[in-house]
């Protein structure tokens, strides 16, 4: 499926709805011997690859699991012991490590939503032409972002495969669904996260 995720951002820039569909996976699992020739660094309270990238493991990838045990930040998920201590002991080798990109947490999505909200405004401001709208399509090499801002200031954002043209139909449909299920529901307060 070509659509990766959908986000809805309120007038103030807060994320009120998000859903992921078919986010492609980048996990790579490999066995390593002692001493570990990949250099790990703590970044943002998580263990990430700093040096020694190869075979699909790239710089910036996070350590997701050790011998199948999931890792949370710098400690194991199950017993909260420090992963780095475990990696430093020779008797634990050979060891199987899984690396990959981390899925965005809810907090990160909220932050990215408000980031986009200001970028959208900048798009208007820095326009060389009169009366430009904000960013409608944003293209990167791995995804395409389609955005539609309604007259009330709500933004519907869809992330898709980069080859897709502007999904105007989908965005319009999202707006219709929003106006039906959210607004016509008397128990829903505007600008609050949608359940």
């Amino acid at each position: 499926m070509a659509v990766y995720s959908v986000f809805v951002v309120s007038r103030g820039g807060s994320l009120i709805y998000d859903i992921d569909y078919n986010v492609p996976k980048t996990d790579v699992e490999k066995t390593f011997g002692y001493p570990l020739d990949i250099v790990l660094k703590v970044f943002d309270e998580k263990l990430t690859v700093d040096f020694g990238a190869r075979d699909g493991i790239k710089i910036g990838h996070y350590l997701l699991a050790v011998n199948g045990r999931p890792v949370q930040g710098t400690v194991f998920d199950d017993d909260r012991t420090d992963v780095r201590e475990f990696l430093g002991q020779q008797q634990n080798y050979p060891i199987s490590l899984k690396f990959g990109r981390i899925k965005l947490t809810v907090n990160e999505k909220i932050m990215l939503a408000s980031m986009f909200h200001s970028l959208f405004a900048f798009g208007c401001q820095l326009s060389p032409e009169e009366r430009s709208s904000g960013i409608q399509i944003l293209e990167a090499d791995t995804f395409k972002l389609h955005c539609r801002q309604t007259l009330t200031g709500i933004k519907f954002i869809v992330l898709t495969d980069p080859r897709l043209p502007y999904v105007e139909g989908l965005l319009k449909r999202l707006y219709e669904l929003y106006s039906d299920y959210a607004l016509k529901n008397p128990y829903y307060s505007i600008d609050m996260p949608i359940r």
């Binding site: 990109r101 798009g123 293209e139 990167a140 090499d141 995804f143 992330l159």
Partner: peptide
């Protein structure tokens, strides 16, 4: 940095372009 964090796969080139209604 927004594109790098949001991207589902590892970026090679990253942000390429954006479009508004007028430019």
């Amino acid at each position: 940095s927004f594109v790098k964090r949001l991207s589902p796969l590892d970026c090679k080139d990253g942000f390429l372009n954006y479009q508004t209604s007028k430019y």
